[in-house]
């Protein structure tokens, strides 16, 4: 197979970028999309040119590093599976057999103000880390935890928490959203911890702090287009956004001030 690639090249965070054209020839249909890029990069290196920079690591859809907008779709166009479902996948789980021989492919980085481009297809997603630092945890110091079976968790709650916890933090939801909203990412974490009994003590302050940080990072708001859910490689449901909104509203009624009286000595 052969392809014509149009790739966003930008030498640094403050440089001007442009689409550049490359030919990918001798492509095996069973190659993954990133393996096809590896081959293109090897040819660039042989010619002494800078290879195309893209983030990747595990190459099995779990680390959340990779993310290329291919022909306008974050992580690339999705096939309809034999069972009628639309496949959910990351860029690294995209295979060349899913494209047509001779096709033109447009490769762009995630586009969002809160994800500045570092180079070529690599963006800075540290905003997600800062949102997590704002409250995406349960305060449980190491040591002294009660027996794992001391808190019984109904299977349906655990399953629902796990559905949300599967988020890999890739940022495709942001890239897919016309508002560059991070609601699906934040909702997934808020819900994972908010559903579980262990997450209840900090539930109100968690949702408030994470949402505040999300706004501070410059992500847009949700206007219910649901593109995020369609783009999510882990099929995180939009219902978690509704859940987060409910939690956020409820949290406004809670007393979030913490007072400390200090040691009585």
């Amino acid at each position: 197979m052969k392809f014509t690639l149009h790739v966003w090249r930008q030498s640094g965070p403050n440089a001007r970028g442009e689409m550049k054209q490359y030919e990918a020839t001798g492509v095996n249909p069973d190659m993954s999309f990133l393996e096809m890029l590896d081959v293109v990069n090897q040819e660039l290196i042989a010619r002494g040119e800078e290879p195309i920079a893209f983030d990747h690591d595990c190459r099995e859809g779990i680390c959340g590093s990779c993310g290329i907008v291919i022909n306008g779709v974050p992580h690339g166009p999705r096939r309809r599976l034999a069972n009628g479902k639309i496949e959910a996948k990351t860029t690294c789980q995209t295979y060349m057999r899913d494209f047509t021989d001779g096709q033109h492919l447009w490769l762009e980085p995630w586009r969002a103000g809160a994800f500045p481009v570092i180079k070529d297809l690599v963006v800075d997603r540290s905003a997600f880390d800062r949102i997590m630092q704002a409250g995406g945890y349960i305060s449980a110091n190491t040591g002294g935890a009660p027996d794992g079976n001391a808190i019984l968790i109904p299977k349906r709650d655990q399953e629902k928490a796990m559905d949300a916890a599967q988020c890999i933090g890739c940022g495709a939801c942001v890239a897919a959203c016309k508002n560059a909203s991070a609601m699906l990412f934040v909702a997934a974490k808020v819900s994972h911890l908010g559903i579980l009994p262990q997450g209840q003590p900090e539930r109100a302050q968690r949702v408030v702090r994470m949402v505040e940080q999300m706004d501070k990072e410059g992500f847009g708001n949700c206007t219910n287009y649901m593109e995020c859910e369609a783009a999510c490689p882990k099929e995180i449901s939009r219902q978690f956004i509704a859940r987060m909104n409910r939690d956020y509203l409820w949290a406004q009624t809670q007393d979030l001030e913490t007072t400390s009286s200090g040691g009585a000595g």
């Binding site: 449980a140 935890a145 968790i153 109904p154 299977k155 655990q158 928490a161 994972h192 579980l196 262990q198």
Partner: peptide, 22 residues
């Protein structure tokens, strides 16, 4: 054994039986 307890306390959603046990 302490690791499991610690992880549960952090909110790791380990698989559960219908009765709610690990």
């Amino acid at each position: 054994v302490n690791i499991i307890d610690q992880c549960v306390a952090q909110g790791v959603p380990f698989s559960r039986e219908y009765g709610g046990q690990l």
